[in-house]
Amino acid sequence: RLEALPQDVPASSIDQTQASAAGLEHQTTAAKAQAIASAAQVRAAEVGIRSASAQAEAAVAQMRAAEASVERARLLVGECEVRAPRDAEVATLPHEAGELVSPGATLVRLVDLTEVKATFYLPNAEVGAVKPGAKATVVADAFPDERFEGTVRTVALEAEFTPRNIQTRTDRDRLVYPVEVTVKNRDGKLRAGMPVQVTIGEGRR
């Protein structure tokens, strides 16, 4: 358009305008190239994100597989351990460490002293006075000044020390019935086989 103008337009104006147009064209080309490069970077970033996501999923799968292996190893170790069903004290160890034992053999004998059992015998004439659930007081010979609270657990249904032939009153008096009393063993003082005296109810011994 400048060239179509009258001849009095300075040539320097035409040159400046052409230079500006060339500069704008170069800027446009550079902007297009930058846009293309930015799009390529975005596509590369998307590919990187997908790759990172796949790597993260693979890492999670490996972690779960490792956890499963650890749990399996823990189960295998647990199968090699023999555990008591409850807390108790070791009474006897019939085998040495590392010794090979046969299936079903006793590995250790445990004694649970948290609650002990006292067994005594009632004559035939007195067995009707004691019933399961009755309160009892136990005194051990080793601790004569202490009283241990107990409860009658069972009264045998069959007599022991029964004579071969019961014919007389004396024979009937010889019939006795085992009675079991459970005793709360505070401080674990009572031991297996320890002699005790049992009192049932109102001073009945």
Rank of each mutant, 00 (worst) to 15 (best):
Y121S: 02
L93P: 13
L110G: 05
C80G: 15
A142S: 13
A134D: 12
A97P: 13
P85Y: 05
L157H: 04
K135M: 14
L93Y: 07
G128K: 00
L110M: 04
L107P: 07
E79P: 04
V130C: 01
V116Q: 00
E79Q: 14
L76K: 06
V111A: 13
D141V: 15
V77F: 09
T154N: 08
E81T: 15
L107S: 05
A142W: 04
N124S: 13
N124F: 03
F120D: 01
L122H: 00
A136G: 08
V155P: 03
P144W: 02
E158N: 10
L107A: 02
E79R: 13
P144Q: 02
E81C: 14
P94W: 04
R86E: 12
L107R: 00
G78Y: 10
V138K: 00
L122T: 02
R86A: 15
A129W: 00
G150Q: 05
T114A: 07
K135C: 14
A84F: 11
P132F: 03
A88I: 13
P144F: 06
A140L: 09
V108H: 02
A105M: 02
R83E: 06
V127T: 08
G133K: 01
E99W: 03
D141K: 03
T137I: 15
T151L: 08
A136C: 12
E160Q: 10
